[in-house]
Design a protein around this nucleic acid. Structure first.
Length: 114
DNA sequence: CTGATGACGGTGC
DNA sequence: GGCACCGCCATCA
């Protein structure tokens, strides 16, 4: 199983209405730099809720592609409020899956923000 | 094997 | 809170 696959596996656990940051996912996967998580998202396969992964500031990270993604609209439809193009990580940051799940799949605990 | 390619984050002004 | 540095990795052709 590649690092990307582990990133996708964890990302798939994020519930509707919650988000995680690139850094949190990287640390949970283990010694995985945030930019690798971002790179993984760029080639996320069908079924991976890539829209629920944002940067440390709670903003949608821009890709270099010309077309803007509907990421923000999707999250707003899931009930997340955006103010000035930014969401409140304090209120929508996911605390992670159960400890059991993390242990069974060999992931580290999700870093608690704020 | 080599090199190009990136959805980032912490720290210190 | 914003901005400029730097770090040195997984993938793919």
């Amino acid at each position: 199983m590649t690092v990307f696959e582990r990133i996708y596996l964890l990302t798939k656990q994020i519930p509707k209405g919650k988000v995680l940051t690139y850094g949190q996912i990287g640390k949970s996967v283990g010694k995985c730099p945030a930019r690798i998580v971002g790179y993984a998202m760029s080639s996320a396969p069908e079924g991976v809720p890539w829209q629920r992964v944002v940067n440390r500031k709670g903003e949608i990270s821009e890709r270099n592609s010309i077309v803007m993604s509907p990421q923000q609209e999707i999250l707003e439809a899931e009930g997340i409020i955006f103010i000035n193009g930014r969401l409140s990580l304090k209120s929508v940051c996911w605390c992670g899956p159960t400890e059991i799940w993390l242990k069974e799949n060999l992931f580290n605990e999700i870093e608690y923000l704020f």
